[in-house]
Design a protein around this nucleic acid. Structure first.
Length: 210
DNA sequence: CTGGTAAAC
DNA sequence: GTTTACCAG
């Protein structure tokens, strides 16, 4: 549990199985910040994987909580450079499809003012591993974006392959039910108390009209 | 924006 | 080993 996001770390896969954060309109600033080093997450007791596992692997250290969403303060920005917040991503995917989704999330946030985001790689058996600590390379990444229309939660869920297709985001929309099956995570019961207060019922896909 | 990396310190 | 400056998608 960090100041500006929370996560559950999988020691087996050496990355977060899920990571959740709130994004508010007023947090979308354009402050210019110096990119820090990736360091171990001080709050992961089992030690989050060292960044050197990624060196020479051919994979990006892809942010789960984007640095671009956390420019409003130095702490918020630097927190995204803990190695608990990154996963191996294909370069073209990270700079392409994944980046376009992150930009779309910021655009939705500007429209609606307040969003909740849950994201991570789909962690399975038999994944490719990199580095001395065997960091798993997910074949797919997912993201749930949720907002509240009055009391009713509205959510969009995505599953994207860890490579670039050049396809529009709509092509990767899925239902939350399917996402739960694929990840093995129950997105209702796994949340913290604070989160549960807000998310009172399971979010359901509501189509592209978000 | 998303990042890597060579060169300098 | 760490930081800066520059580079590409």
């Amino acid at each position: 549990m960090h100041e500006y996001y929370m996560l559950s770390y999988s020691e087996e896969h050496e990355q977060a199985e899920w990571l959740a954060y709130e994004l508010k309109k007023e947090q979308l600033t354009l402050d210019d910040r110096k990119r820090p080093y990736f360091i171990e997450d001080p709050k992961v007791r089992s030690k989050s994987a060292d960044w050197r596992n990624y060196k020479g692997s051919g994979f990006d250290r892809g942010h789960l909580c984007p640095a671009g969403d956390r420019r409003f303060s130095k702490l918020a920005y630097n927190e995204t450079f803990y190695t608990s917040n990154i996963a191996p991503q294909d370069r073209d995917f990270n700079a392409g499809l994944w980046n376009r989704l992150e930009m779309k999330v910021r655009s939705w946030c500007k429209q609606h003012g307040h969003l909740y985001v849950i994201t991570g790689g789909i962690l399975e058996d038999g994944l490719q591993e990199i580095g001395e600590e065997d960091v798993d390379v997910p074949n797919y990444f997912y993201k749930i974006v949720c907002r509240f229309d009055g009391k009713r939660p509205k959510a969009l869920a995505f599953i994207m392959p860890n490579r670039e297709f050049g396809k529009p985001l709509e092509g990767f929309l899925v239902s939350v039910d399917e996402l739960e099956k694929r990840t093995g995570i129950d997105f209702f019961y796994q949340q913290s108390q604070e989160w549960q207060q807000t998310v009172e019922s399971k979010v359901r896909t509501n189509g592209w009209d978000f």
